[in-house]
Design a protein around this nucleic acid. Structure first.
Lengths: 213, 213
DNA sequence: CAAGTAATTATGCAAGTGTATAATTTCTGT
DNA sequence: ACAGAAATTATACACTTGCATAATTACTTG
């Protein structure tokens, strides 16, 4: 009666690759890069070990792909928030997006930490890092410059450099703490602190600006 | 003629333990916790594998000891800086010490990242973390409160909480960036940025206060 | 100076690792 | 419906891993 079921299903390459990448990110976040074994990844993606190798000819390659995927997801989540509107408002929304879930998230921080070593040693990984990091920081610097100009304040490059570094540091630090101690902050608190702090540093109040376009 | 040399030397237990811990930290910083193999640690400490096991009956135990050793070293390096003097000056020197080598250092950041996963999963490691993290943050909050009182500003607990979180975030963020991108900042620049930023946040200038007691 | 003891080395083992290759199974085009 | 090709599974191998235990060696103490 019971007809023999298919033993597996063939799926489009892109879907399989993405599934493998997501499985990899899960395991890397949980156990680190070395702890994310090929067998573990296969199991997480509900697939046999050989298939991993079929799509990524080496573990290194899979790890790089996963890192790039993750970093792209992160930047996508923030970049979209800072379109249109007054400069001050764009800046505020950018900060707010960066300090709110899903960007603030334990898994993200765990991934960041887990990949750090690889980034330091592997040229390909470092290239991905540079691209996204510089993108983030330049974006922030641009937004700060626009806000200063709009407010009629000076935005000399020397001063701007300091403001971008400092602003970036507050945001990074808050992002880190929010991810590492998820229960230590109430909803919205991180974003509020971020807005107040960056506002104090650049001498432009930002708190009221986060909502409206 | 050539008398047969001793094949090894017996050393006091404490010296051996410390040597093993230092070797462990080297390898963890370089390759992560899983990458720091017992054999590698033994080799780094110029010793055979069996000896590691003789002093630390499990790898877990050695890793914990190394983490505790490292965290203690970090707090020792900062705590000493904030003794005596006016509150504003103590705060400034504390920030300055935290944003200057040897606290700011690529190896430290690498270690922090490498241990993060372990800290999340192991109760013993988490206890060590809580102790040092809370110590640092409470210390900063205390210093900020003293500086506010000294300046005649209000230091209500709600406001103080915000200031401590924000100040801590700037410092963490700068520490992170200084360690991750050692060549991106000139000597003393990080400390200067940290002082200016925290000063802006708490509305008390700190830059001139870093030197004198 | 001899002997005992603790530090240190030497050797071994079972489980897990990445990678390579062969054997199946599913799906598509005709 | 039926090849043929590509996706997927299955199996194997050499190497590393943490841990265990036995064999040496250096130092202390009487």
């Amino acid at each position: 009666m019971d007809r023999e079921r298919r033993k597996f299903e063939r799926k489009p390459a892109e879907a399989r690759k993405e599934a493998l990448i997501l499985a990899t990110l899960d395991l890397v976040a949980e156990n680190g890069v070395r702890g994310a074994t090929v067998r573990g990844i296969a199991k997480q993606a509900d697939v046999t070990q050989g298939l991993v190798r079929h799509y990524f000819s080496t573990k290194e390659e899979l790890i790089s792909a996963a890192y790039e995927y993750h970093m792209n997801a992160l930047t996508d989540q923030t970049a979209a928030s800072a379109k249109d509107g007054k400069a001050r408002s764009r800046l505020a929304r950018f900060i707010s997006a960066t300090l709110t879930p899903p960007v603030v998230d334990a898994r993200s921080v765990a991934l960041w930490a887990a990949f750090l070593n690889k980034v330091r040693h592997d040229a390909g990984m470092r290239a991905i890092h540079e691209r996204t990091y510089v993108y983030f920081r330049d974006h922030l610097e641009e937004l700060i410059k626009a806000a200063l100009d709009e407010a009629g304040q000076s935005s000399k490059s020397e001063k701007l450099r300091y403001l971008a570094i400092a602003g970036n540091a507050v945001i990074d630090g808050l992002w880190l703490e929010g991810g590492a101690l998820p229960d230590a902050f109430s909803s919205g608190e991180l974003a509020q602190i971020g807005l107040r702090s960056v506002g104090a540093i650049i001498e432009i109040p930002l708190e009221a600006e986060a909502e409206q376009p």
